[in-house]
Design a protein around this nucleic acid. Structure first.
Lengths: 189, 189
DNA sequence: CTCAAGATTTACCGATCAGTACAGTTACTG
DNA sequence: CAGTAACTGTACTGATCGGTAAATCTTGAG
């Protein structure tokens, strides 16, 4: 049971779950794609649910890492970062293989709020909210909590729009709206 | 084959799919819940996919009917309706048994953009966009298309937030943000 | 080399999946 | 009443679901 083997399994599972969905992906398929036997798979993860949770955790770390780094690269001041977070979003939308937010999909497939998977998905969103709230506070806005929640509404809405194809440039729409909200929030200060 | 029997089946399927998910709901369960034999079920709908499409169509008609009626009841002018659409949204969130947008969930479970179910889900969102664009145009805003797209970002984001529990009152946050966007759009005119 | 301990594979479990063959039942026609 | 056409219920199909028992292979110690 090499420790890196387990990571490979999670990696592959993440990819397949993201592309295929959770219920629609059977353990047999995962076993086939990872070139590992079923028993070995179940040695690493006692249930499918455990594997899903591991995949979501990896996704959370990776996405938040990429996203915050990208935002930091695109702008230096918290004020500007609140805007370029929508540019980073647009880059994500245009990536090959983009098909929505894994956590939204997870909570859609495991709907019950008490379900572990649903809660882990919600936790990811909460961490993102904390991140944006921190930016808003650092930028000196009054009521950074409300501002962050509203910016996240735009972000989540843009993801949905990107998946459902309502708009040619959902991230751009969101960024324009965000600029208005930011200006208005600043005026109140 | 009474015509109303088919409607009952769609009705029940809609409820179970909404509560349980699509892949997670087997035809056996639906047959059990509708008190109809499997053969009869497959007489009305040749495949599960056909049943899902019928359920989505009913949901589309019903939700848009309810939503536009509720908005019309809460305000008379298009200008005010663009705001109270978020009050109606909040009422929906607080309904018993609310568990997100059926079309978002459908497109999450049937991800491929070419899939019939995905497209039918996208069509619903497009009809809603047309509705809001119409309101924005009637209210006399310049660039009603962009304004409508941005308001819908807030609406979709609020739905996600309501499902994932980021916020105590996502509809209220969205309404406040919408008010700012509306004022800014008016100022440009 | 021998031999035990751990990891891996094969083959399988009962349950459930979407979908169907066929016999039985009903209801309308003459 | 007989005949028939439409409908319904039972019982089943092969495939796949998540998960496992027992056999096989690998490995390191003595």
């Amino acid at each position: 049971m090499r420790p890196n083997k387990k990571d490979e399994l999670v990696e592959k599972a993440l990819e397949v779950f993201y592309r295929n969905g959770f219920h629609a992906t059977g353990m047999d398929l995962l076993v086939r794609e990872t070139c590992v036997s079923k028993t070995s798979m179940y040695k690493h993860f006692r249930t499918k649910e455990e594997l899903i949770l591991a995949a979501l955790q990896l996704r959370d770390l990776r996405f938040r890492g990429w996203y915050t780094a990208r935002v930091a690269a695109l702008a230096t001041t918290p004020q500007d970062q609140l805007l370029v977070m929508f540019d980073a979003l647009g880059e994500w939308f245009r990536e090959d293989g983009f098909c929505g937010c894994m956590f939204v999909k997870a909570s859609a497939e495991f709907q019950h709020p008490d379900h572990v998977i649903h809660q882990q998905a919600a936790a990811h969103k909460h961490l993102l909210l904390d991140y944006v709230t921190g930016l808003a506070r650092a930028a000196g806005y009054p009521d950074p909590e409300t501002l962050a929640r509203q910016l996240l509404l735009l972000k989540e809405g843009a993801i949905t729009a990107a998946v459902m194809g309502d708009s040619a440039d959902p991230a751009g729409d969101a960024k324009a709206a965000a600029a208005i909200l930011l200006a208005a929030a600043r005026a109140v200060a």
